[in-house]
Amino acid sequence: MSADTFFFVGASGLILGGLYALMATGLAVVWTTLGVFNFAHGAFLALGAYVAWQVSDGSGGPATFLLAACVSAAVLFCLGYVSHFALVKPFERKKNMVLLSVITTLAAAAIIENAILLIWGPRDKQVPAAVEGSFELFGSALRYQDILALVTALAALVVLATFLRRTATGRSMRAVAQNREAAELMGLRTSHLFALTIGISTAMAALAGVFIGSLRFMNPSFGADPLMKSLIVVILGGVARFTSPIAAAFVVGLAEAFSTFFLGLYWSPAVLFGMMIAVLVVKPEGLFSRRTKTL
């Protein structure tokens, strides 16, 4: 294997990793805050991509793409905020809340997917890219859109991390995640903060969706694959720290790229799930976590 190929495969792995990081962090934030695994995350991603497609209306270019991405993130933020009150809150006092939320989020996924099918139809679509064309680096062609996706994903993660660490709202969100009762007794608006968490997570899913929709073709159920990968990422990396799913996302992205190149497309899921099983057996709290987070 030549250095050129190595670089090319590595670069595509990094880009995949960036998008997985964006999605998996959204999942991890909801998981650590509400103790709920959001199976509708993939459907939200797909919906985000379709909203962006609708807004950009067939025309590309940076301005349109920016507008489309922003509208999509905003719409999905609102949907996520509302979905807390529809999917999670009615059951929060139930003992089997985790199982119930699995069912409600799966139901939401099915509803959203079929709504997309009804509204936009089954034909493959693609969000027009912000920047067309590619450039040559170390003998391999890289698309500008790929680089934009990676940079935006990392920037969004930095913004989220800063938000959670520095702002009062972000800190309150962490407080609610760590001790709900104490937060309530402090007078924090727990429902609002929970809804905000889901909203932010779905907005990030939308952003990932817009980029995946611009790099590949999209259809109503194309969120299922990224959801599966983010599940692997979250299990692989653990959720104890903000950075652990991000690091794991790049591991998964690179593993996927290299296994696709060497073993073929059909074997890469097997490799990823093999890794996941190995981690679950050897280090169940995740590769990059020193301990399990108590919820």
Binding site: R171, S172, R174, A175, Q178, N179, A182, G187, L188
Partner: peptide
């Protein structure tokens, strides 16, 4: 609260700062 663990992963500074804002 009794034996309150508060927010284990936050620093004293962060907790004190969000307390009045709440």
């Amino acid at each position: 609260m009794q034996g309150n663990l508060l927010f284990p992963e936050m620093t004293v500074k962060e907790v004190i700062e969000i307390a009045p804002a709440a």
